[in-house]
Amino acid sequence: MPLPGKGNEKTAAVIGADGFIGACLVRALSRGGIPTLACTGERPALRDGIPDPDLLEADVVFFVPERISPAVAERQPGRGAEVLAELRALLTALSVSGRRPVFALESSGGTVYDATREPPHDELSAVNPATAYGRAKLAQEEVVAAAADGVSPVVLRVANFYGPGQGASAGYGVIGHWMAAVLAGKPVRIIGHGDSRRDYVHIADVTDALLAVARRASVLRAEKRPVVLNIGTGTGTSLHELHRRFEAVVGRALTCEREPARSFDRQDSWLDVRRAAEVLGWRPRIALADGLADTWRHCLARPHAVEDEGQVPPPVRGPAR
């Protein structure tokens, strides 16, 4: 069925609509009144190299597949190459269409920057990924930037995202894993030393940023160079502090198991997000305490929610702190 956009109405396509971010984004675009093509494993953007006709009509294309994680990238080096090949084929198809849509790539704010530099990292900070996942994400950024004649590249370097409905799949999201552990009556795991700090951003804030890209497509298309934006909270939170906040939300002390750091784990990493405010008019609005409470309420209401990625209700918003 063709996208129903008419006149000046924006239309969008989401590659990876069956992942956590993708499913949340499709819901946000729908609530925002933006007709959207949801590309999944059952309805791929490309089939035998031929693009879905609706894909070529989209004003904004979001590339948010979640087939690799930091852990998967280390164990299966070929997975990153597969995603990169898909990305190249997709960009070629869009370039041939001659419409030059905005192409928004979800990249990694936590792994592409040089870990030897003190955070917060802004978009001009040095990149020097030390993990297979970070290298895979940076390679995606480079491929998208090189396709600027055929698409308008927008790279969103997203921090550690979490929220209602996030699954506890391997390599993704300490918060999702902790929620699943508590529901199962198991200890929560702290990997590495608990003083390492990360930037935890609620999925609703992430989708708000992506929605802002769709709404400002005309402005972004006029940019002469690829637009790179950090999407996070601008604040680093240690695992120890996250554990304390989680205990406060759950309402009881939680047993911990400690494990040594893995080869792909980083130390401190959080983002400077001021440029996203300037370019998109976007700011994070959900404080960590509110986001954890929101996610925990969802888990209690749906004990198997951590296994149902993407089934996300509208979040409860709280004032940013």
Rank of each mutant, 00 (worst) to 15 (best):
M1H: 11
M1Y: 06
P4V: 14
K6G: 15
N8K: 00
E9T: 11
E9L: 14
K10H: 04
D18R: 06
F20V: 01
V26P: 11
R27V: 12
R31I: 12
G41Q: 14
A45F: 08
L46P: 01
R47C: 08
D48N: 15
D48S: 14
G49A: 12
G49R: 12
P51D: 09
P53A: 14
D54V: 00
E57Q: 15
F62L: 09
F62R: 01
V64L: 03
S69C: 06
P70Q: 00
G78Q: 08
A81S: 14
E82C: 04
A85I: 08
E86T: 09
R88E: 14
L90Y: 13
L91C: 04
T92I: 11
T92A: 14
A93C: 15
L94R: 05
G98H: 01
G98V: 03
R99Q: 13
P101R: 02
V102P: 06
G110W: 13
Y113R: 05
D114W: 13
A115V: 13
S125E: 09
A132S: 15
A136F: 01
K137R: 12
A139H: 07
E142W: 11
V143R: 11
V143E: 12
V144W: 05
A145R: 15
D149W: 12
G150K: 07
V151C: 06
V155L: 15
L156E: 00
L156G: 02
R157G: 09
N160K: 08
Y162P: 08
P164E: 01
G165S: 05
A170Q: 11
G173L: 01
V174S: 08
G176R: 03
W178S: 07
M179A: 14
A180P: 09
A181K: 00
L183E: 02
G192E: 00
G192I: 03
G192M: 03
G194K: 00
D195I: 08
S196E: 10
R197M: 13
R198Q: 10
Y200V: 00
V201T: 03
D208T: 12
A209E: 03
A209Y: 11
A212D: 08
V213C: 06
A214F: 01
A214S: 02
R221C: 10
R221N: 10
R225C: 07
V227P: 02
V228S: 06
N230R: 05
I231L: 12
T237C: 01
H240M: 05
E241P: 02
R245L: 04
V249T: 14
V249M: 01
V250A: 11
G251R: 05
A253F: 06
A261Y: 05
A261R: 15
R262I: 04
S263G: 10
Q267F: 10
D268T: 05
D268H: 15
D268R: 11
W270A: 03
W270E: 04
W270Q: 01
V273G: 11
R275P: 02
A277N: 14
E278K: 12
R283G: 12
R283M: 13
I286L: 11
I286F: 09
L288N: 06
L288G: 04
L288K: 10
D294C: 10
T295R: 03
W296Q: 08
R297T: 07
D308M: 08
D308F: 03
E309N: 09
G310P: 13
P313D: 12
G318I: 02
P319W: 11
